[in-house]
Design a protein around this nucleic acid. Structure first.
Length: 211
DNA sequence: CAGGGTAAGTGCTTACATCA
DNA sequence: ATGATGTAAGCACTTACCCT
């Protein structure tokens, strides 16, 4: 129990639960299974031996179960004082009360595990859907980027052509204005350049990259 | 009769107390 | 203080019984 030395009992229970749910994540908490030992078989109880009739297993009455359930609702563990008090109230052996709590805790734990499994399964499924959505968005953005790069290439070639034909070695505003702004207009940039919502380039700063 | 639910048996571990 | 031993309680696993 070295791995759980500093944990409370509740934490330890939680860790064990987690280890059973995610053995890959919490392998150290999974009980190591060695060579399984053969268990001693219990004798059948069909009327007893040598005339001694062993008490048969009987179901608890509904009122007994109700009181046990109420007590379990208050507290899952049973101190011996409460066990004895409960046993005398119910007219049962304290051992029976202890066994009932033991089995009830086991059922509760199974139920919790099932609930946790369902929750994780649902979360996993929605993560898969989100992953697909993000992957398709990445594809779409890559396509947009590729289109934008092609367009930049096209415009650059065009600008180069204009400047080589011009008598001036520098770009005149005339040369810039006419084909560039005149063709697309300022409001048309959004169609060619994808601007992410988290703009890293503000205002017209991007424009300086190309001049 | 089959199968599910559950009381109870079994084997093991852990925590705690007592004693040498 | 420390290690050995006994005991009670808890858990996982299992069995057997009851009921539908």
């Amino acid at each position: 129990m070295t791995t759980t030395m500093n944990l409370s009992k509740v934490d330890q229970d939680h860790m064990v639960l987690l280890s059973q749910l995610y053995p890959g994540v919490y392998p150290q908490m999974v009980p190591q299974q060695g060579e399984p030992k053969p268990r001693r078989r219990r004798k059948k109880n069909k009327g007893g031996e040598n005339g001694v009739t062993v008490a048969k297993k009987r179901k608890l009455r509904a009122d007994q179960v109700n009181l046990l359930e109420m007590n379990f609702g208050n507290e899952h563990k049973l101190e011996s004082e409460r066990k004895d008090k409960l046993a005398s109230e119910l007219g049962l052996d304290p051992r029976q009360v202890a066994v009932w709590f033991q089995n009830r805790r086991a059922r509760w734990k199974n139920k919790k595990l099932e609930e946790e499994y369902t929750k994780l399964k649902t979360a996993h499924e929605s993560n898969i859907v989100e992953k697909c959505r993000l992957e398709s968005e990445v594809l779409k953005l890559k396509e947009q980027l590729s289109e934008a790069e092609k367009e930049i290439q096209r415009l650059t070639e065009r600008v180069d052509g204009v400047s080589s034909n011009s008598s001036s070695s520098t770009l005149s505003m005339e040369a810039m204005d006419t084909p560039f702004l005149g063709e697309f207009g300022m409001e048309g940039y959004g169609d060619f350049f994808y601007m992410p919502e988290t703009n890293y380039i503000h205002g017209m700063e991007w424009f300086n990259l190309y001049v």
